[in-house]
Simulated scan of single mutants.
Amino acid sequence: MTNHHQSTRGKPRVALVTCSALPDLDPDDRLVSGPLAARGITAEPARWDDPAVDWSRYDLVVLRSPWDYALRRDEFVAWARTVPRLVNPADVVAWNTDKRYLAELSAAGVPTVPTTWVAPGESWTPPADSGEIVLKPAVSAGSQDTGRYDLADPEHRELAVAHVRRLSTAGRVTMVQPYLSAVDTAGETALLFLAGPDGLAFSHAIRKGPMLTGPDLGVAELYKEERIDARAATPEQLDTAAKTLAVVPGGTDRLLYARVDLIPGRDGAPVLVELELTEPSLFIGYADGAPERLAAAIASHLNR
């Protein structure tokens, strides 16, 4: 089969990759369609697991909301490796969809939330102290299968053990992290970076309010509802984000976007919660000009 390129067939076509639960994309992602059309670029939603899609027909394939991949990560990564002109690239997808990358970033000197890992089949007992912890799988999206536990509460301790056992039985690695109480007041800050002429450039930031109210009871949901507000990034947050992006394997020149999620640590300094390079919400509806900046980033990748 011959690949068709924009130089030989009129308007460039871009696939915005989604999942069956969001066939018309997440509402925030739809905001880029107009700015892309204004640039003469046709954008179409496409499900990542739709066998009828011919990915070679697109000049660029942009991962946006394939948020159902967590229970099929191997399948998702294998699919990504078959897609031409995918952004972010397949090797980034393979690295970033398993949150054990946090251990690599921590070893490289990036301040991260302290994390321990419980492998499938490994026994786990809640720490003896009475603080709060967060449990979540190493492969997840949208805060799926994530819970908050108060270890001073005997019932919470039992539910925490059950949570780890549930993930272990499913063959999933569990992350154990302290709950950082600053999220209840300062919230979580997401810094959004988009491709520009000189590589990734800071676009905007948002504040996410606290989402975890208690234990996870195993109820399936695509993502947890979030309270989002615009926020100005501080120099310290931007510095932490720069340190994080500086150690991304393969560098950041290939990336279309990146999202760096930070929370104040116990000393008040920002620590990394997650580095989102696969399918992050970009919150382009919360910053003036952000839809146009995303369209410009996509156009820049089309021109490469």
Rank of each mutant, 00 (worst) to 15 (best):
T82S: 14
G34S: 11
G289F: 09
T2Y: 02
D239L: 11
Y101F: 07
A233T: 07
L159P: 08
I298G: 09
P84L: 08
K208L: 12
D267M: 10
A103R: 14
T189S: 14
K243T: 06
A299I: 04
R64M: 09
D28M: 03
R266S: 14
D54V: 14
W67N: 06
E226S: 12
V161Q: 15
Q6Y: 08
V118H: 03
T189K: 08
G265Q: 10
A21W: 05
L25T: 02
P12L: 06
I206A: 04
T115F: 09
R30Q: 12
D150W: 04
Y286R: 01
G196M: 07
L180T: 00
L86S: 05
K136H: 08
R72N: 09
D54L: 11
I228E: 01
D91S: 15
V87G: 02
A242M: 02
E75K: 07
A52D: 15
A241K: 07
A160T: 13
S33D: 00
P270A: 06
D59Q: 14
R231Q: 13
S130N: 13
V134H: 09
T42P: 02
L16W: 01
L245P: 01
L191S: 01
G268Q: 09
T234K: 06
L256M: 05
A205S: 15
E158H: 13
T125Y: 07
R81M: 01
R9F: 01
Q6R: 13
D261V: 06
V87D: 00
G131C: 04
T82A: 08
A162P: 08
R157H: 11
A37F: 04
A182E: 05
P215W: 02
V93T: 15
L151N: 10
Y58N: 08
I284P: 00
M1E: 04
D54T: 14
E236W: 00
L256E: 02
D129H: 15
L31A: 07
K224V: 13
T174Q: 03
V273L: 15
A160M: 12
D49S: 14
P35Q: 09
P178M: 03
P84W: 06
Y101H: 08
G250E: 03
E292Y: 05
T278G: 03
D153A: 09
W79G: 00
P291G: 11
A241R: 03
G289V: 07
T42M: 12
L36R: 09
I263Q: 08
E279I: 00
D239R: 15
H156E: 06
W67R: 04
A232L: 11
L60P: 07
V93C: 13
T244R: 02
E226A: 14
F76G: 04
V139A: 09
V176D: 02
A160K: 13
Q6L: 07
G109T: 12
G121S: 04
T278A: 14
R47H: 10
I133L: 15
L60K: 12
D239S: 15
G171Q: 07
A258D: 04
E276W: 00
E225N: 11
V14N: 08
D239K: 10
P154I: 10
T18D: 02
Q144R: 15
A170D: 12
V134M: 05
A70C: 10
D216M: 05
A103Y: 03
D229G: 09
L86N: 04
V219R: 11
R72M: 04
L294H: 11
R259V: 02
D91N: 14
G34C: 00
P66M: 08
A94L: 05
P197W: 00
A70Q: 14
R231P: 05
L255M: 07
A80G: 13
I41L: 12
S300Y: 04
R207I: 03
